[in-house]
Nucleic acid binder design. Structure first.
Lengths: 199, 199
DNA sequence: ATGTATTGTTACAGTGACTGTAGCGATTGA
DNA sequence: TCAATCGCTACAGTCACTGTAACAATACAT
């Protein structure tokens, strides 16, 4: 399983050093007050190397926060015959939230990430983008799963409402200083609100 | 009503020239292939002037968004006593949609924006940021207007669902080649879908 | 009308994110 | 041990964006 060669191990070490240097510096002085050059310097690599590992300055903080769209698609694919639309949709969203949550918590950087995401718009947006990029895909899968109930517009609107509600609720919770559990409850509450309009 | 002085009129003319130059250039050559310096040059102003009118290069394409939020806030502020939440919300959204149709959809600007946003990450990001701040403002106003019915989370979720649904529907309509009228109908349909969950 | 304050615009000089490229040196596989 | 690979570096460059001082046209007072 861990068959990484020496070269690859060194690469990962560099990557990790960049992440840790960035987190420490961001924590100390704030996101905007830290330049990429300084991060690279603290990690003892050249500035160019930073961008060989991360596409943007923001990405160094979201390195392990991938959203698994395929999980939601899987839920839709594996639905039981005759299962109501609202239940499938709720379960799919819940699955995505749970997965993203686990990764964030296990990374150990969840607190800093939440704090920075709440205060730096660029990070806020970048996080939400991961959910939004899944939107069209989800809508399409949902429409194919319920062709009799949903046209393309309705499917898009439904998924858009879900993602929009959950994202907005999560952000509001984070911004007012809620902890992880409360934020998660807020997301579920938002989900339930939209789910009512399907039934 | 139009009591603008000469100075202010010139300013607006400069602003409009920048917008039109930008739209034309973006349409011709694509977003990334146009520099701010070129836009300023085409509008016959200095590059510095561009940033006195728009915070970022992306903002020149989102010039009318602020006006729209103001319209919705106005609807909320001018509600009749005892008017149901669902009606106020629907009217506020409807007002924004109508304005969007007037300004952006009918002119084809919305279609260009959707096309560019789909392919340019920076534009996507900025658009999202605008939506987020607009949503937060709306949610706050809505909660203050209906403090007995809405907590902060529910208000955010509600507005997020509305905006998310309407945006997704509009995008889907535009992407499949619908005209301005069909796009507007799609937005209204999405709005009605979410509105059901309030009642 | 005339002087004064305001302000939209400008030129200039920066900072910092991000990219292309060529070369070096350490791993890798044969 | 030879050759190919590849992560990294240095260097030079583009471009979005900002601070600042100055200018000239407008606005406003007297």
């Amino acid at each position: 399983m861990e068959k990484l060669g020496l070269r690859e191990r060194k690469k990962q070490r560099t990557r990790q050093a960049l992440i840790e240097a960035a987190v420490r510096l961001f924590d100390d002085r704030g996101y905007d007050q830290v330049t990429v050059a300084e991060i690279a310097d603290a990690a003892e690599v050249s500035p160019r190397t930073f961008f060989l590992h991360f596409q943007t300055k923001e990405d160094v903080l979201l390195a392990n926060a991938d959203v698994r769209v395929d999980l939601a698609l899987q839920v839709i694919a594996e639905r039981h015959a005759g299962e109501p639309l609202s239940e499938v949709l709720v379960r799919a969203m819940d699955r995505m939230i749970a997965d993203a949550w686990d990764r964030d918590l296990s990374s150990g950087l969840a607190a800093l990430r939440a704090r920075l995401a709440a205060s730096v718009p660029a990070l806020q947006t970048r996080l939400l983008q991961r959910y939004l990029s899944a939107q069209a895909e989800l809508a399409q899968a949902l429409q194919r799963a319920f062709p009799a109930r949903l046209d393309a517009i309705t499917a898009s609107a439904l998924v858009g409402a879900m993602v929009g509600a959950v994202s907005a609720a999560a952000l509001t919770a984070l911004e007012r200083g809620d902890g992880p559990d409360e934020a998660r409850d807020a997301m579920r509450q938002a989900m339930a609100l939209v789910a009512r309009s399907v039934a």
